[in-house]
Design a protein around this nucleic acid. Sequence first.
DNA 1: TTTATTGT
Length: 305
Amino acid sequence: MQRLFCSRWFISGVSLAVGAGVGVALSSGSNRFLPEDGLLQRIPIIPMPSVNAASEIIPYQHGQLTPSKSTAAVKYGFPSLSHIKSRESYITCYDPRNRTPAWVIEQLNAEALTGTSDRKLCDFKEDEAVHVYHRATNSDYRGSGFDRGHLAAAANHKWSQKAMDDTFYLSNVAPQNPHLNQNAWNNLEKYCRSLIKHYENVYVCSGPLYLPRQESDGKMYVKYQVIGKNHVAVPTHFFKVVILEKKRGEVELRTYVMPNTPVDEKIPLERFLVPIESIERASGLLFVPNILKRTNSLQAITARV
DNA sequence: TTTATTGT
């Protein structure tokens, strides 16, 4: 895991600047791609199938207009759909195998950050919307040595007590090194909140990573601890993708990765910037597909600053 | 200020 931070990513970072010219190109196409579109347009997941409509979900086959024979294979249902949940304060995709979120996305703005909500009134709680087989519980975390680290941060949702309460579902939480959670990661969250002063809109997508590393036999393995009776996975790293909209519609992306270990908070946050592509490859996710997938002409986007 | 855990 140290390798990630020794590589050139460590210093270079990336910031994709979508210029004003691209903004015009966007609006000349389908409205779906306008930056003003809401949170839902930015979910890093491809289409939501409609439940019970097997023929709509079966993989597309070239030149085939009738439902494929494999429709019958799912007569008794799909083992999973996409586990998207919408909450008062955020939208999340749950990872039932790891008992943590796969990602959580939230919009930060002055209204959301202002209010009298009090985290002392909140308790971490099981998410009863998650099947018991796949649900993390407080007892899984107790005595584990890990914090219940929020992905959508409580302080991002002070506007309503309910919104803050919703961030305390364990489906919005992953085992996090206490030092990281309370120092460097907390600083990154504070920094994200501070960005609302300088940008029209701030969207934040956070999640766990399980990065491979070389073991002593020279081969690459993904190794991670699991805690509690439910074997809640301990991520090796965490990512944060910050989507910043300027007043003229320009979009800037910043992608951070921190290891799930103590991190010296004197290290400037910029040192944790990585290219968004590296997170997309490592996580299996695609961020801002509405911008980056739109055309083949990535050259229209300035890909390094 | 915000992030938390543990023990009573």
